[in-house]
């Protein structure tokens, strides 16, 4: 008899807890994959496609699924890889050479006297940073350009250059304090 009561109590407990879990699974269902959002937040959003995926979000999804490595994003640079490694608990690895190298930030500039107004670059720009219309000169909105270089290839007259962004008083940064290392014999003399 005791045995039966014990089984009944355990079964009841299992039922109640199971129902609670089942309810919670429905009530607190997680929409989408939050890890994708977190990865996407680390990626630089240049949408350049150098990683081999059509944009940052698809790359984030591929990383989350384990289909892509974390070192395929040159604009994110070394620091981006480190952040991704931190987030995903993976081993840090240097940027993969086949996807390109980290470059200083540059923006596309259209040589306006050469532009024929073909609109191909406008269609190629992933972030709508080029303004212009058919048979009208185009120009790049510098503050919106992410430097993805996707507009360079489609241009039939090769009138787009990547110009590195010069340092200004607004973008200048204090450098990391460097400790001067003096030769040992100097120190002995002192």
């Amino acid at each position: 008899m005791d045995l039966l009561i014990a089984i009944a109590i355990m079964a009841l407990g299992a039922l109640v807890l199971g129902a609670a879990l089942g309810y919670a699974a429905v009530r607190f269902k997680v929409e989408g994959d939050p890890i994708v959002e977190k990865i996407d937040a680390i990626l630089p959003q240049t949408q350049c496609g150098q990683c081999g995926f059509p944009g940052c979000k698809p790359y984030a999804e591929a990383i989350a699924k384990g289909e892509a490595d974390i070192n395929q994003c040159p604009p994110g640079g070394d620091e981006g890889v480190r952040k991704l490694a931190d987030l995903l608990g993976k081993e840090y690895k240097p940027l993969s050479a086949e996807h390109g190298q980290e470059k200083p930030k540059a923006v596309a500039v259209i040589r306006e006297e050469l532009c024929i107004g073909c609109t191909l670059c406008i269609q190629a720009c992933p972030v709508d940073a080029i303004v212009g219309a058919a048979k009208q000169m185009h120009t790049v909105v510098e503050s919106l350009c992410t430097g993805c270089e996707l507009c360079i290839k489609p241009c039939p007259v090769e009138c787009i250059d990547m110009v590195p962004v010069p340092e200004t008083l607004e973008t200048w940064k204090w450098k990391y304090p460097v400790i001067e290392i003096k030769p040992a014999d100097n120190r002995k003399a002192a």
Partner: peptide, 17 residues
């Protein structure tokens, strides 16, 4: 912070496109 804001803007425009 500036970079983050810029990336957010780029993402928004990319999604809108």
């Amino acid at each position: 912070e500036k970079e983050r804001k810029m990336a957010e803007g780029a993402k928004e425009r990319f999604e809108f496109k």
